[in-house]
Amino acid sequence: MARIALILFAAILYVSGVSQADARSWQSSWVTVINERHGFAIAYPDNIFTQKSDQPKTDEGGVYLSKDGKAKLLVGAFENADRQSLEDYRQFLISDQYATAKIDYAPVKARWFVLSGDRNGETFYQRVSFTCGGKLINSWAMLYPTSERKTYDRVVEAVARTYTPGAGRTGSCD
Rank of each mutant, 00 (worst) to 15 (best):
N47C: 07
N47Q: 05
N47S: 12
N47V: 07
I48Y: 09
I48K: 12
F49C: 01
F49A: 04
Q51M: 08
K52Y: 10
K52H: 14
S53P: 09
D54C: 11
D54T: 08
P56G: 01
T58L: 05
T58R: 10
T58P: 00
D59H: 11
G61P: 09
G62E: 08
V63L: 14
V63R: 11
Y64K: 05
L65V: 12
L65N: 00
L65C: 08
S66F: 06
S66W: 10
D68W: 00
G69W: 01
K70W: 13
K70P: 14
K70C: 14
K72I: 15
K72A: 10
L73Q: 02
L73H: 03
L73T: 02
L74W: 08
V75Q: 06
G76P: 02
A77N: 11
A77G: 11
F78M: 04
E79M: 03
N80M: 10
A81M: 13
D82L: 08
R83Y: 10
R83F: 12
Q84V: 14
L86Q: 03
D88W: 14
D88C: 07
Y89S: 01
Y89V: 15
Y89Q: 05
Y89W: 10
Q91V: 03
Q91F: 08
Q91A: 12
F92D: 01
F92T: 11
L93N: 12
L93V: 13
I94E: 00
I94T: 02
I94P: 04
S95H: 13
D96M: 10
Q97F: 08
A99H: 00
A99G: 09
A99M: 05
A99E: 11
T100C: 03
A101S: 05
A101Q: 06
A101M: 12
A101V: 03
A101C: 02
I103G: 00
I103Q: 11
D104G: 04
D104K: 01
D104A: 02
Y105S: 15
A106V: 01
A106F: 06
P107D: 07
V108C: 01
V108H: 02
K109F: 13
R111M: 13
W112K: 05
W112E: 15
W112T: 04
F113S: 05
V114D: 11
S116I: 02
G117I: 07
D118Y: 08
D118A: 04
D118G: 05
R119K: 10
R119I: 13
N120I: 12
G121R: 14
E122Q: 08
E122F: 06
T123I: 03
